[in-house]
Design a protein around this nucleic acid. Structure first.
Lengths: 231, 231
DNA sequence: GTCTATACTCCGATAGAC
DNA sequence: GTCTATCGGAGTATAGAC
């Protein structure tokens, strides 16, 4: 099991060791994530992680220098998972506005299904915890991809030129964030699509063309009565 | 200082004692609120409260039966403060849609200025804490008042008849909640009105007439080109 | 209604042997 | 990279004297 110290260590063994180390890192984060799910966003205890991993607490410090480093890794993991859900939904939807809507909805579904991690990402429930720039990166990628989808929507004539802007991205994010936080605070046990709040999401998305009306819509709206009503 | 036990206690003394007790209760909550502000929503420690109050921790149990009871009182206090801000803004604004907007904006200002309390109200960052119905009551009052203001807006022709509904109230709440949570998570140190998110609030409010267009707007919109754009 | 004393559990983190 | 041992606290809550 242990490599005798006096023998030269073959390169494969180093790889194996590195791989094993990565596996342990992931295992620690799996346990930490489960703990957050069970105990709430402030429920991470390194002692409990060690207990579940079957090691003594000091051993964890070979993998993470502090509790906050674990939180930071969880933050990055959450950003990664949320971003993956969004990118996947965007890729699967027709380009343009449908992709924007699909991406935002995927973010909402993910957040309600992972509320403790979502709180870590979307608010700041822990004093003295500031995510590192590295942990934030997936979120930037998500923002960039949503903005690309908005630009597609402008190109396709689904939204007006103003939608190709940082402001439009922020509006879209505000709409999904509102749906998430109202659902989570008022109906934390209901999944996306049930209750009084998350079902409003399609109506909120219909507001994007109202805020950034495409040229055709402007013309057609003046030609027909009552089309000013959104959905 | 202490009333001798063998003497009959005058009624004023009982009142004084009750008043003094209420004062202490408020003082405890003041300290607890300050602690939340300093340490985050999960930073309430009864030992620290006792330290700052200048008593020993066990003494606090004469006022609150448990830590969760303190959290519940803080929850109610937050609801009360937020609701007061909203009601005051509604009362000071012209009735109808301006009152709705003023009320929601007041809620946003309060939330950004009291983020730890706001997290307690608007998300569920603490495992094993469920606010009591009593602590929720001010929130219900706020919802009812906002809905009255929406009904006024319908009566005044500022919004269409659909705005006199629970759904419209939920939409309005979703919009302000989105503004709050995006500002708090992305720019926690900026006050309301600065940064990339809370300044979008007026544009979001302009979406209410887009969702629930009043009769006149429908007519005037068909008569003029380009007015389909919101704001 | 205050205190002392205490029971009990828990935590994050470090030193140093192996 | 694991462990034991330990530091140096933290905390909530209760019992009981005064």
């Amino acid at each position: 099991m242990a490599t005798p110290a006096e023998l030269p260590v073959p390169a494969e063994a180093i790889d194996r060791r590195a791989r094993r180390r990565l596996e342990t890192l992931e295992e620690i984060l799996d346990i930490a994530e489960a703990l957050l799910r069970e105990e709430g966003v402030n429920g991470l205890s390194l002692s409990e992680v060690a207990r579940r991993l079957g090691v003594q607490p000091p051993s964890l410090y070979k993998y993470f220098p502090s509790q906050m480093a674990v939180y930071d890794a969880l933050f990055e993991r959450g950003q990664r998972a949320n971003t993956d859900a969004v990118l996947k939904a965007i890729a699967a939807a027709p380009p343009g506005l449908p992709a924007v809507i699909a991406g935002l909805e995927a973010s909402g579904r993910w957040a309600l299904a992972n509320q403790a991690l979502a709180q870590l990402l979307f608010w700041r429930p822990l004093a003295n915890f500031e995510p590192t720039a590295h942990a934030m990166e997936p979120g930037l990628e998500e923002f960039a991809e949503l903005r690309r989808a908005l630009a597609d929507a402008v190109r396709l004539g689904q939204l007006g030129p103003g939608a190709d802007s940082a402001e439009a991205l922020h509006v879209a994010i505000t709409l999904i964030a509102g749906a998430i936080v109202t659902a989570a605070s008022n109906e934390p046990h209901l999944p996306w699509g049930e209750g009084r709040f998350s079902p409003l999401f399609p109506r909120l998305m219909a507001l994007l063309p109202a805020l950034y009306p495409p040229a055709q819509a402007r013309r057609s709206r003046t030609a027909s009565t009552g089309s000013g009503s959104v959905k």
